[in-house]
Each structure stands twice: as structure tokens, then as C-alpha cells.
Design a binder for these strands. Structure first.
Lengths: 319, 319
DNA sequence: TCTACTCACGAACAATTGATCAGTCAAGGG
DNA sequence: CCCTTGACTGATCAATTGTTCGTGAGTAGA
């Protein structure tokens, strides 16, 4: 057996003794025949490898209430709200990711083949990272959004590859920029056989986990070099507040018609209506974008945090 | 809102910050506006109330191997083997219980109505204890084994009540001793309308979680005053090695015909064949009993620990 | 064979967590 | 109005956990 496997094995055993059995590291050390710092290292490894899954089994009423309100008001199938941690340096994406992982895992556990689409962004990526390894060769994952930046480099926040690696499933990546350089380039891309093949897989997906991007100076779309500064300025000037898969939305959730829109390569949002789109996004700064996406009625599920949930409810006058 | 609910709420929040967020108690204290020992108390409460569920996400290869072997050899649908902890004072029942809870929860999560039967014993009880509260009014739980001791007292290890309480489901308890005082008494019990009603619910169960009892001086059946000493002696003298629902089994898993057998009030094991019987039992001392139950082919699933699994595999010559 | 390098180990120390206990405050009763 | 009771609080200390760093074993290359 692989040396690393043996370590992991022992790490799992140590973790079991520590977390489930509640024994001290000294006891575990005696048990496994290693030194106490050895146990420490094993536990650190177990945590790092994501072997340890903690689940807090209580509907934190505040979050429950917020979730219920959002579900009712925006006609969602589900809405999970996680508690916020104001001074978390890694802006709470982790919390949303853990909750997202729960939902995602529920789909993955299915034995029938599943086609699942993924958006892009840090939150989606973090969610995928939190998923545990499992063997699901029957599933297929497909990206809903191009993962090539303007300079040709691939997106660091691609979730499809990571998820497919973890589950030994099929992967379908969209080899295109989110926003093409010109209308003609977009046309050319869309006519490629390969591109169409992937788009048709995407159309077959039952469910999609996507991010929600705010449109501002910190916009992921801009930071990650999918659009340039003048394009960002254009979006801002026509009052875009957020984007889904690259499609800019106004405050009411309508897709804005502007020069950028005509060059977006992602599948049309309308065409994704048959699938269950689940948005993963948290933080006050994403509030306006989330509200917009909800108002547009694009989402069937939402996983967010207290801060964003409160923003949305405070600013959503009942239509 | 209830004062206790508020506490629990805050406890859940503290637990979230601590376990999922990985923050220190000092940080959590600042966050929630309580003192550090206050956080300590909240976390203790959360643990005590079973709000925190830890799951080690790694097929500990050793256990995996044992489980696979048992599954293959005895034609089981599944077999979970948990690692053993030799110097755990509470004889490893807790470990088996956690694993059992996982399986049990999978059934409970179903939305369609489920009828589930339960055996008796410490392990079954501990498994039920580990289940988290959920609302499942559509389910029904029924006991497969009488829960009245010879002195008329009710069994401390009854799982049906505990599980029904946790899930707000229907409960059906068998108001009878496991072993009746005489053949006539048994006859009288079986003819009661109430008894028959419960037995018919039991017959409808899809799945049953039961314990496996060893037959020796430490036998639960004896310790808990379901049978008296002379009955125990009789069972020992006709080579009983274990019991399922009170039915004594020989080393080959056949039901032994003796005076005790003719007074057992539980449903006949044969009649339970349509349902999925899952045994929960661990520890070397239960090894012979588990082996017997497996040989008899009574089980569809087994949740046990390394020690028992190894005993069974070491002593089971391939038939 | 020697040397340089890597890697894992465990000693020692720092940080965090868990437990105890005396003091305080609020509610209820005389 | 004062006293009793009981629960909660936070100071303090002990236990446990996390981290750092020097050491030595093992290994590959000169």
C-alpha cells in the first residue's frame, strides 16, 4: 500500500479516537504507538485532508428565520443561511462553502447518473474543495461559464476539474473567455463543434451551482481579468449591480443590453430555466447582486450568510 | 422565545464558530459578547445536547477490508466496521452506536412514511440516543421484543420511546415479557387484541435495527431480569451461544428448541424475513453470538467493531 | 566511502481549553 | 423590607493541545 495511504489511515484512526471517542492525544499516542506530537501531526493531516466533517445539528433560529423569509418571498425551493463571522479574515466564503457542500453532496450521493453544471468564482471553488472524495463515475460535471481569461490563462477558480477529480466523474470544460473580444469572435466560438458539444451537455444538467458576482471595482469578473477596465466602466454606467455567469443584471434582475452582453459566451440564462440553479454567495458586498438575481427569478435555491440575507430582506420591498 | 432555546441557539452559534470556523474561545467570546468561560459552557451544552456531529470521512482501510469480507462471506447488503478502542471504559458501544446512527438516520430522512422496528439492548438504545432531533410524524416505530422484565418493570433500554420522542413519530411498544412465565401465559398474551395489533404493525416494518445478545453469565437477557438463573442454565446446557430478540441460537445459527424457546413472545424470526434486519453489536464477547446470527442468515446488515469482525472472520470456516 | 541533503521525530515551550470556586445578582418568601 | 435560595459570572489554575526547533536516521550523489 502507498505510504501516504497508510498515514492517512492512521490519521483517520487518530481522528476517530479524538473526535468520536473523545480521548486525549496522550491516550491516542499510547494506542497508536507514536509520540504525542505525532498524533498532533496526524490530526492536522486529517483536518487538512478534509477527513473530518463537523455538522452543527441545530436550526440556528435566526438563520432559520431569514432563510424561511427568503424562501417565501422569492419562491425558492430552499434557502440555507449560515451564521456570519464578522472578523473572519477569509471573508466568510468558507462558511457558505460548508453549507453548499452539504447540498452538493446530497446530489452527488445519488446512484443514478447525474449531470451537474457549475459556475465559476471563489465561492463555488471553495464549495467544491469541501466535498469529500467519493467514487461516482456515472456523473458528469460541466462548466456553465468560460474559464479562460483574456490573457489566455485558465481560471484558478474552476470547480469542474476539482470536483471531477474528487469523484472520478466526466468533466466538460468550456474553453472560451467569459466575454469574447468581439461579437464576431463570440459568433465563431459558438459555432465550434466542440463548444456546441459542451453546451449541449450543459443544457442537459439537472442542477447547477453557480456564484453571484457583484459589479464594482472588486468584481471577480474584473479582478480575474475576464473583462477589462473599460468594459467594467460600461457595465457600471448602465447600472449593472451583479452578474450571473457573466450576464450583467440591473437592480430588478433584468439582463442589461449593452456591448458586453452581446459578447458573453455563457448559455443564455433563459435556456437554463429547466435546471435548478443554486446560487452560492455571501457577504454584504454581494447583497445587491444577490437581491438582483432573486428579483429576476433566476434562482431555485440559495445558500448565503446572515449578512447578505439581512441585506436582501431589508432592501426587498415586496413586489 | 423559551430561555433555554435562546441558550441553545447561542450554543449552536458558538459551536459553529468553534468547529466550522476554527476560531478560539476568546474570539468567540468577543463575538458573542460573553466571557470566555461562558463560551466554554455554551460549547459544553452544545456537546451535551448532541448538537455537534462529527463524521470521519475515510474508509479506514482495515475496517473496510473486514467489512467487505463479512459482506461477501455472509451475503449482507452492508456491513460497517468501526475501529476498536481497547481501553474505552464504556465497552465500545458508543463507537458502534455512532455508525449505527448514520445508517438509521439515512432511513429516517425519508419523506415517505416508514415503519421501522427496533430490538432491545444497550447498543440499540445508544444508537437511538445518538440520533438527532427531527420532525418525522409520518414514521412509525415498533418494538420487536417485549420490554417488560419479570418483575413488571419496563426495560431501561427501550429504543422505541426515545426514538419516537426525538422524531414525533408513532410508537408501538410490546407490553409483554420477552420470555413468558409459562406456555399458557404466552398463549394468553399472543391472543390479546392489543398484542396482535402491535405484532401486525411489526410485520409491516421494512427494516429493523436489533441487538445481538451473547448467552453467558453476562447475558443482557439475564442481567436485565428477562430470564432467571435456571433458564440461563438451561440455555447454556443446550449450547446456546447467542440470541436474537430473545430467540436462542446455537453455534450454527439455528433456533434451539427448549423450554425457554416455547415461551418467547417476540415475532418468529422466520416471519421477519421480508424485512431488512440490521444487527448492532460489538466487542469480542459478542463474537460467537454475532457469528451465529450471521450463519443462521438472519441478518441483512451488520454494524460492528473491529474486534468482533475479526473474531467472526477468524472463526468462520467457509461453508 | 564520504558528504550533503531531506525528512521525520520528539523535547520543550507557548497557547488554548476545561474545571473549580468564591462572589454577585435576582427572584421569591417570610 | 430583609433574608434565603439558587443560578449565573468571571478569576484562577490545571490539563490538554499546538508549535518550534534541534537532532539523528536514512538516502542519493560525488
Amino acid at each position: 500500500m502507498d505510504k501516504f495511504e497508510v498515514k492517512l489511515d492512521q490519521a483517520a484512526r487518530a481522528a476517530w479516537l479524538s473526535y468520536v471517542g473523545g480521548r486525549t492525544q496522550d491516550e491516542i499516542a499510547a494506542q497508536l504507538g507514536v509520540s504525542r506530537p505525532g498524533v498532533q501531526r496526524l490530526l492536522a493531516l486529517a483536518r487538512q485532508e478534509g477527513l473530518i466533517k463537523v455538522h452543527i445539528d441545530h436550526p440556528i433560529s435566526n438563520c432559520m428565520t431569514l432563510g424561511q423569509a427568503l424562501r417565501d418571498q422569492f419562491d425558492l425551493e430552499f434557502c440555507d443561511v449560515v451564521p456570519v463571522d464578522p472578523d473572519a479574515e477569509h471573508n466568510s466564503a468558507h462558511y457558505v462553502a460548508v453549507a453548499g457542500c452539504d447540498r452538493l453532496t446530497r446530489y452527488l450521493e445519488r446512484t443514478e447518473p447525474l449531470t451537474l453544471s457549475l459556475g465559476s468564482g471563489r465561492t463555488v471553488r471553495a464549495t467544491v474543495e469541501a466535498v469529500s472524495r467519493m467514487d461516482r463515475p456515472q456523473h458528469r460535471f460541466v462548466s456553465l461559464v468560460g474559464n479562460v481569461a483574456r490573457d489566455g490563462s485558465s481560471n484558478r477558480y474552476d470547480g469542474v476539474t476539482a470536483l471531477a477529480d474528487k469523484t472520478a466523474s466526466g468533466r466538460f470544460l468550456l474553453p472560451a473567455p467569459v466575454v469574447a473580444g468581439s461579437v464576431e469572435e463570440r459568433e465563431a466560438l459558438l459555432n465550434q463543434r466542440l463548444f456546441q458539444a459542451i453546451a449541449s451537455v450543459a443544457a442537459e444538467a439537472e442542477v447547477g451551482f453557480i456564484g453571484v458576482g457583484p459589479i464594482n471595482r472588486q468584481a471577480t469578473l474584473f479582478q480575474d481579468d475576464f473583462i477589462n477596465e473599460s468594459e467594467l466602466d460600461e457595465l457600471l454606467s448602465c447600472r449593472a449591480v451583479g452578474e450571473l455567469l457573466g450576464w450583467p443584471l440591473d437592480a430588478q434582475g433584468r439582463i442589461i443590453d449593452c456591448s458586453v452582453t452581446r459578447r458573453v459566451t455563457s448559455p443564455a440564462l433563459e435556456s437554463l430555466a429547466p435546471q435548478r440553479l443554486v446560487a452560492l454567495a455571501g457577504g454584504t458586498d454581494k447583497g445587491p447582486a444577490i437581491l438582483s438575481a432573486l428579483r429576476g427569478g433566476w434562482l431555485k435555491g440559495l445558500i448565503t450568510d446572515e449578512a447578505a440575507a439581512r441585506y436582501v430582506l431589508d432592501n426587498a420591498v415586496r413586489r
